[in-house]
């Protein structure tokens, strides 16, 4: 059984299919609730197969509201620019740190890692970015703070570089007279396509799903990305739930969008990510093999 390839394959498929059901079921619930008639949703609760189908939520999003189309444009723009800059910064920092012979390597690693642990809180960062860089209510506010490079990605990439690229390869290239920039661009990067593709994906997801920067730095509707928009809606409900008894609460819920709309935004926000993902998967195979370089 153990050595039987077919048995193994079959078992693996079973496990993966079960996991996929586990993952998909709530998502199906999400989609079906977004196409359920609003009143039915409140009356009957969520169900896998909508009892009364209604596309009102999507109609509202795409016909009567400019916000979604605008939000999409902003999200795509921010994600593309942000991911490119992030990946450039991350790679440029991770490669030297992956070199075991770099003087003061552990100091710099520590310098990077330390930022994962300690932070001065929101107010000082906010002051930094708004008072000195004036990013409030600009597109930069969705790109620059907190996301443009993170210790997590640097460390992931560094670990991957140092465990997958043998020192001998770099040493050999250096002896051949290649400079560090050339080693990075012509040897390290081609050999690291899987991790680059993975991190591009992860950083891209991070940008796509980010709403915290929007919460802090955006107060104008016209700069709302999809996720900022969605989270503003959700937060309003959370606020109402947490502030029972606050003054004037009676009329406060007038602007709360219907549940179906929230669900529809959640779907609309997540689908494009799933559509792009397969594109990255083709890089999830070994780039140039080490053997080839050695040869």
């Amino acid at each position: 059984m153990v050595s039987n390839g077919k048995g193994f394959q079959r078992a693996a498929h079973v496990v993966m299919i079960l996991l996929c059901v586990f993952c998909l079921f709530p998502f199906v619930l999400l989609i079906s609730s977004s196409i359920t008639d609003e009143m039915t949703l409140i009356r009957e609760g969520y169900s896998v197969i909508p009892k009364v189908v209604s596309f009102d939520a999507y109609k509202y999003l795409f016909v009567s509201s400019k916000a979604i189309a605008r939000g999409y444009k902003i999200t795509v723009f921010v994600t593309v620019i942000g991911t490119l800059v992030n990946l450039t910064f991350t790679t440029l920092l991770a490669y030297p740190l992956s070199r075991k012979d770099l003087p003061h390597r552990s100091f710099f690693s520590f310098f990077v890692f330390f930022t994962m642990l300690f932070n001065g809180g929101v107010v000082p960062s906010y002051m930094m970015w708004t008072q000195f860089f004036h990013i409030k209510n600009t597109y930069a506010a969705l790109i620059v703070p907190n996301l443009m490079m993170g210790a997590f990605y640097v460390i992931m990439m560094r670990t991957n570089f140092s465990s997958n690229i043998p020192d001998a390869v770099i040493e050999a290239a250096r002896i051949d007279g290649a400079g560090e920039w050339r080693i990075l661009s012509q040897i390290v990067l081609p050999m690291s396509l899987p991790i680059i593709a993975t991190l591009t994906l992860l950083v891209g997801l991070h940008y796509w799903n980010d709403w915290v920067n929007g919460l802090y730095y955006i107060s104008k509707y016209k700069y709302y990305s999809i996720q900022v928009l969605l989270n503003r809606m959700l937060q309003d409900v959370q606020y109402l739930m947490s502030s029972s008894g606050a003054a004037g609460m009676d009329s406060m819920d007038s602007a709360i969008p219907a549940t179906g709309i929230k669900m529809a935004v959640a779907v609309v926000g997540a689908l494009p990510e799933l559509a792009v993902y397969p594109f990255f998967q083709k890089y999830f195979v070994k780039g140039i093999t080490i053997g080839a370089v050695k040869g």
Binding site: V123, K220, R232, D236, M252
Partner: peptide
Amino acid sequence: LTRVGFGSFETQLNLALSSGE
């Protein structure tokens, strides 16, 4: 005039008041 929804109003107001904006 800036208007902010309830869910983020306190956060944004607090940041503005705390940062010298």
